[in-house]
Simulated assay, not measured.
Amino acid sequence: MHWDDLRVFLAVARHESLSGAGRVLKLDPATVGRRMQRLEEALGTTLFVKSPQGYALTVDGQRLLARAEEAEQAVIGAADELADKAGRLGGQVRIGAPDGCANYLLPQICARIGAENPDLDIQIVALPRVFNLSKREADMAIAVSPPSSGRLTVQKITDYQLHLAAHRAYLRRNPPIRSRADLKGHRIVGYIPDMIFDRELDYLDEIGAERVHLASNSVPVQLAAIREGAGLGIVHDFALPFAPRVVRVLPEEIALTRSFYLVRHADDRRVERLNRFAAALLEALPAEVARLQDMTKA
């Protein structure tokens, strides 16, 4: 049995389809299918049950999955040891994050980490949803709620603040806002209610709003709408420096605090490359949040 066959097997097991595995491996789905058929013939057993819903592991497939993941960790560990001996952090790290964090925090943080480690390739996946680390969608993820299930390790990174905000032009052309009661009748920018993927992002009750007049599942799209004067919305304080004429509204009355958590697969604690990247992230992200939030107070 070759490692390359196990690599293909892992991709099919994690993505539960030939097409999903093919996208990750950059192989034609038919080629992936032939590789799995060849592996099953070599082992003399059936590894997957095929159905219209996808590829599900058999009992023997589950057994092989555990061994294949051990082999994967061994290969990754060996590569990391060689890179470490050369005095550099190399290879690839993929980090998933909510799109607010991915747009306004991770680019500058990862740019600095990358500059210090020229052999390291960093991939930032910005998606407004929860990442599935068991399917290896990312090596690690930043979340706004700590997961309660799965073989995961979770570390709190930092708290961050959010406030109601609007563009100065919107505030000039609309009735003044001196209290929560004055918010009635103002237009609200926020999340599409049925696409909120984490309860920590449901801000409507906290600002007393009953309706979202302009909605998006994307934080940058919401901020862009607020910047264009579309209405009031909850904005991360660390994003305000990227929208200079957007200002906080009722900051003493409406102030929210949320947290970022670093989530990793439990098996990856032996991967030195990921440990070192995580350590750099845990140091840099709180500092960057603090720096940007301080700019809004100036």
Rank of each mutant, 00 (worst) to 15 (best):
G90L: 05
A79S: 13
R88M: 11
K50L: 10
R34E: 04
A30D: 01
A79M: 10
M36N: 04
L43D: 15
L64D: 15
Y55I: 01
P29Y: 08
E70L: 10
A42T: 07
G54I: 05
V93H: 11
A74I: 03
K50Y: 08
L43F: 05
T46F: 04
Q62E: 15
E81V: 00
A83S: 14
E81H: 01
V93D: 08
Q53T: 11
F48T: 10
L27P: 04
Q37D: 07
A83M: 10
G90D: 11
L82M: 08
Y55A: 10
R88D: 09
K50M: 07
L27A: 02
Q73H: 08
R38M: 11
R94V: 15
M36L: 15
G44W: 05
A66W: 06
E40A: 05
T58G: 09
L89K: 02
A68G: 12
F48Q: 08
K50I: 09
G90C: 08
L43Q: 13
G44Q: 11
I76M: 03
L57A: 11
D28P: 07
K85R: 11
D80Q: 05
G77L: 02
V59H: 14
P52V: 00
G33N: 03
E40S: 08
I76H: 01
A78N: 12
G54T: 09
R35E: 12
A71P: 00
G87N: 11
T58M: 11
R67Q: 15
I76R: 01
P52K: 01
V49R: 15
T58P: 05
S51K: 01
T58R: 15
A42W: 05
R63Q: 13
V49F: 06
L82A: 13
G33P: 03
L39A: 08
D60E: 15
A79R: 15
Q53W: 11
L47I: 12
E81W: 00
L65G: 06
I76C: 00
D84C: 07
P29T: 04
R35C: 03
R35I: 05
Q37A: 13
D60G: 02
G54V: 07
L39K: 04
T58D: 01
A30L: 04
V32W: 03
E81D: 07
V59W: 13
D60Y: 14
A68N: 10
A74G: 05
L43N: 09
F48V: 13
A83K: 06
I95H: 03
G44I: 13
L47W: 10
R67L: 15
T45Y: 08
L27E: 04
R88S: 14
G96E: 04
E40V: 05
R67T: 14
E40L: 05
E70R: 11
E72W: 10
Q37L: 11
P29M: 03
F48L: 08
T31H: 01
Q92R: 13
Q73S: 10
V59Q: 14
A86F: 11
V59M: 12
P52W: 00
L39E: 13
P52Y: 00
R35W: 03
L65S: 06
A66T: 14
L57W: 10
E70G: 09
A71N: 01
K50F: 07
